[in-house]
Design a protein around this nucleic acid. Structure first.
Length: 791
DNA sequence: GATTTTACGTA
DNA sequence: CGTACGTAAAATCT
């Protein structure tokens, strides 16, 4: 059946889909299936106050393709040569649009965009106003297809934004004129004059660099002093300077003055500011706004790249495609767009009342840059020795496994592992957990599955041997990283969290750590270095690490979030108790005592272990399988333990309900420290569990970072060296003597032991200290001990 | 050669 | 039906 256009012909907004689905084919109406794309489509409209009866809707194709696959309408698999039927429909579409002349067409999906503009990639134009080539002069705003949103729900709010933009554009047929002007690239004198004018007027400007991969040495500098004008300048071409020595000195001198006297806007200042300081000694002292940070604070669940921000904040043509065509133009447009988004971002920050969190994140730029550029010293002798030992052990285990299987097997290959375990040896196949029952089961040979198999087949001891072997291989990766010529490892601390576009795009406010692209030495992420590899990280000569981590941070926060006054009291007593009395305040023993209704003093180590596991698991709403795996017991036993835990801690489930109710209206949670997050997953358990973990995780991360900033502000100028950050722990290095250690611990305690307020309750999280010359080899140190030394 | 999937290290 | 993060190697796509 043919599915025709619906809606009033004089509608100023026109929605174009790709092809009808099954239900649409039956009803003859586009986007009519109320359980699939149609439902999502309606939801997008209703979020923008639109009624579908008031808008024109059609698909490019008017008949359902075989297997719902658009390639059916093309001769080739790459979908470049359309068959006559599709050509005819596109011609019909052209006539229809010529006749009704809507002010804007929303192109939903890649084929709709292709039919209207010839463009193929939705990601390159999504959210931007582009002109149709099919009907010249007609405005097109591309966005995702509703069915794509059904597959990836995180796309939903972005699409709502795009349609909102289309609604705005439906008021007029005019294509917005781009007033942008630039000089790219500018000659040396012109660029210097431009900077001079900005300097004299003390103007605010946006700054952006392009730099060589590997060295991060900048070759192109872009400056914009308004939302419509900027210049870029090549300081390097073909690996050599474009200037003579005198000019070069003048350039960096002038930029340095700008950095001192003018406010600057950057997108990802962590990088640009660090590079300019590191390579040219140019210090931008007044970063007025890092637009990446602003974006992170306002929309932590959205992508943050400049192209995306531009698409939702500005009315300009897409420019990211220029990066490979004309670097100078691309660079200056980046600077101009950065300037342009700052104003709407500032408005949004005020509107959402998020200035405090924004200023807080901005204030962490300097500590983060400092830590990246300083790095940590590597004990290379120790590293090589550990590497040798590791290689030795790896060889031994490999030999055993080889003789077991009589052939080479790549144990890192999931395919070969499945072949071996499930087909050749006929072990019971293990499957990954599915997101929903409809999904097909995927086989796995991951560590969890292997452990389960090892329990099931105790006569196959090689199962655990494979795990040992893989562990050694993994460790080898950490130990293999070469230190810098100065003998150091570096990492980039990312204030705005995840850089990778993971599913759901979570960012809970904790810092992430990744490979430094300025100083590319070390295993990259420093926050997942295993204990053995930590032995290679050492304090500088004559120095020692002081580690301070927040004691039981997560458990304390959860106790206050759920309003467990008994536990709150217990933690309070633990905090004030003397060193000898600490044994009386073991939260895991308390948990076990409540679960098993046994006297606190009679709790065995085994019972304590169960208590610890259960508290941890239940804080995040884990299920019986996880508990069973963690304790190495049967699922039925785990279920009993879970019941016991919830009976002893009834408030937890009450809190789960409260969180769900809070999410229901706006899907947004606000932490006790004022950070907001909107949860965009499909409504259900996965979303809930993510939300349960958000509040404690984010609060601890923010609290520790607050402490770090206070420490940095108060003591770093006077020589205190912060070296590492690990979510709930801080590492500082100081002179290796009692007095310096004691002084450092006192300073850290002063900054870290501060009251937190949740609800009406104010409380304090204690700090545990450890001291050592090597990260992997730290000894407990009680601050009371130190005070005694001082006395 | 580029992108996606699988697995795994830490908090 | 713990979650958050980044990276290496294998698998898969083009």
């Amino acid at each position: 059946m043919i599915v025709k256009t619906t809606g009033p012909p004089d509608s100023k907004i026109f929605f174009l889909g790709e092809a009808p689905g099954e239900i649409e084919e039956q009803t003859g109406l586009p986007f009519q299936n109320m359980h699939g794309a149609g439902k999502t489509f309606n939801l997008i409209l209703s979020q923008n106050g639109i009624n579908r009866r008031d808008v024109r809707i059609r698909n490019v194709a008017m008949r359902r393709p075989t297997a719902n696959n658009m390639s059916h309408f093309f001769y080739d698999s790459k979908c470049t040569v359309p068959k006559p039927e599709l050509v005819m429909w596109i011609e019909q579409l052209r006539m229809e649009l010529e006749e009704s002349r809507p002010n804007v067409v929303v192109a939903m999906g890649a084929y709709a965009l292709w039919a209207l503009t010839g463009m193929k990639k939705i990601s390159e134009a999504r959210g931007y106003v582009v002109e149709s080539t099919l009907v010249p002069g007609l405005k097109v705003i591309p966005t995702y297809h509703p069915q794509a949103i059904n597959y990836e729900w995180k796309l939903f709010p972005v699409t709502v934004f795009d349609v909102r933009k289309a609604v705005y554009h439906s008021n007029s047929p005019d294509i917005p004129k781009d007033k942008t002007q630039y000089v790219a690239p500018a000659a040396f004198e012109m660029f210097m004059d431009y900077m001079d004018n900005i300097l004299k007027a003390r103007k605010r400007f946006a700054f952006d660099i392009e730099a060589h991969i590997g060295t991060a040495y900048p070759y192109l500098l872009g400056i914009a002093d308004s939302a419509h004008f900027g210049m870029s300048f090549y300081n390097m071409k073909n690996n050599s300077s474009t200037m003579n020595t005198r000019q070069e000195a003048q350039l960096w001198q002038k930029l340095g003055e700008l950095g001192r006297h003018c406010e600057v806007i950057m997108h990802n200042a962590s990088y640009d500011k660090a590079v300019m300081w590191y390579h040219h000694g140019v210090l931008f002292e007044n970063v007025w706004m890092d637009t990446l940070i602003a974006m992170h604070v306002i929309f932590p669940e959205f992508p943050r790249d400049l192209g995306f921000v531009g698409s939702i904040m500005l009315d300009v043509q897409p420019w990211k495609n220029l990066s490979k065509v004309d670097a100078a133009v691309y660079n200056v447009l980046d600077a101009i767009r950065t300037f342009a988004i700052a104003e709407p971002l500032e408005k949004e920050l005020i509107k959402q009342k998020m200035e405090k969190t924004f200023n807080f994140e901005m204030s962490m730029l300097d500590p983060a840059i400092m830590m990246q550029l300083t790095g940590v010293k590597v004990d290379n002798e120790r590293r090589l020795q550990l590497l040798d030992e590791n290689a030795e052990q790896t060889r031994a285990v490999k030999l055993e496994l080889d003789s077991q299987f009589k052939r080479e097997i790549n144990f890192n290959s999931s395919k070969q592992m499945q072949q071996l375990l499930y087909y050749e040896l006929g072990l019971e196949p293990q499957f990954k957990r599915r997101k929903s029952v409809e999904q097909t089961r995927v086989m796995t040979t991951d560590a969890k599955a292997m452990k389960k198999l090892a329990r099931k087949y105790p006569n196959h001891p090689w199962l655990t041997k494979i795990l040992d072997y893989k562990k050694l291989l993994k460790l080898n990766g950490f130990l293999s990283a070469e230190p810098s010529p100065e003998g150091r490892y570096h990492t980039s601390y990312n204030i705005t969290g995840s850089a990778t576009e993971n599913e759901g795009r979570k960012s809970f406010g904790r810092w992430s750590s990744s490979e430094s692209i300025i100083l590319t030495y070390g295993p990259g992420n420093l926050q997942n270095v295993p204990p053995i590899a930590r032995k290679t990280y050492r304090a500088d000569d004559g120095k020692i690490f002081v580690q301070a981590d927040m004691r039981q941070a997560e458990a304390v926060i959860v106790a206050h979030l759920i309003g467990d006054t008994r536990l709150q009291h217990f933690f309070k007593m633990a905090f004030t108790a003397s060193a000898e009395e600490q044994a009386k305040y073991d939260v895991h023993k308390l948990t076990a005592s409540l679960m098993f209704e046994v006297d606190y003093d009679l709790i065995t180590p085994e019972m304590r272990r169960v208590g610890k596991t259960l508290r941890h698991a239940c804080s995040y709403s884990a299920g019986p399988e996880v508990v069973a795996n963690a304790l190495g017991i049967e699922i039925s036993e785990a279920k009993i333990l879970l019941n016991l835990y919830h009976k002893a801690n009834p408030l937890l489930k009450v809190w789960y309900q409260i969180i769900q109710n809070e999410l229901r209206t706006t899907r947004t949670l606000t932490t006790p420290l004022g950070r907001k997050h909107r949860f965009l997953d499909i409504w259900g358990d996965k979303l809930f569990r993510s939300a349960y973990s958000y509040l404690p995780q984010s609060t601890i991360g923010d609290f520790l970072n607050e402490s770090m900033r206070i420490l940095y502000d108060r003591f770093c100028e006077a020589g205190l060296e912060i070296v590492m950050q690990l979510h709930d722990a801080l590492y500082v290095q100081c002179d290796n003597n009692q007095e310096a250690i004691s002084d450092t611990m006192t300073k850290m305690a002063e900054c870290m032991v501060r009251p937190i307020t949740i609800g009406f309750e104010e409380f304090i999280i204690g700090v545990d200290f450890k001291v050592g010359t090597h990260w992997g080899d730290m000894d407990d140190k009680d601050i009371l001990e130190i005070e005694e030394v001082e006395e």
